[in-house]
Amino acid sequence: MNQSSLGNITTLAKRELKGYFASPVAYVFIVIFLLLVGFFTFMLGNAPFFKLGQASLDSFFKWHPWVFLFLVPAIGMRVWSEERRLGTIELLLTMPITAWQAIVGKFLASWAFLLLTLICTFPIIMTVNYLGKPDNGVIFGAYVGSFLMAGSYLAISCMTSAITRNQVISFILSCVICFLLILCGYPPVTEFLTTLGVSQSLIETIASLSFMTHFDAFQKGILDFRDLVFFFSVIGFSLFTTGVILRSHRAG
């Protein structure tokens, strides 16, 4: 990557990120995310935060895949469909930049925004540290996992938003894809598959495609190279597909 492509990506990402804060989208998103995650953490489940009786954030992180499932596509759905709807894609792609610089720049901006949202949950770290002595390494690992998972959801949403200029369709498509990728590793589902007599190796293969399987390891504080590879492959593949879709639209 040379200097100018890095410069182009930064310029694009800066514009995109500013765009979030120029409209109420950013603020609404952050507030809703914090409210939902807070509500789930303290109120729902077998072991909500206070009843758990442990200085850990398990009850916090276990809801992330589900909250992201609806909120990340809401961020990602406009990335390309908005460009196509407004016609600005014609401006963007006739500028002296490559399509992949545009794709990466826009993706990184939205991902940075999701990082910011995650950072806004910092009071819960302070709370748990005040109440007890949690393993902050595990918490850090879980945050990394959560961030990577959000990135994967986002890359998939970027891809679906390149498919259509209708944001609603884009939103629903990415929700469904992400939901399937959660489900295929969700214990109740894998157990159900076992009762159907599906062979164990096939179930494991399917489960290894799931966000859940890989996020679990992070939640336990394990930073496994294979899990990192998984999330980065999902991101890489989705962004590559986005490029193919955008090109095929232009080829007519």
Partner: peptide
């Protein structure tokens, strides 16, 4: 592309800026 300035049909621009 560096040499070209282009005004597309319907003059699109980023509305939120």
């Amino acid at each position: 592309k560096r040499l070209i300035g282009y005004l597309p049909e319907n003059a699109p621009s980023y509305n939120d800026m």
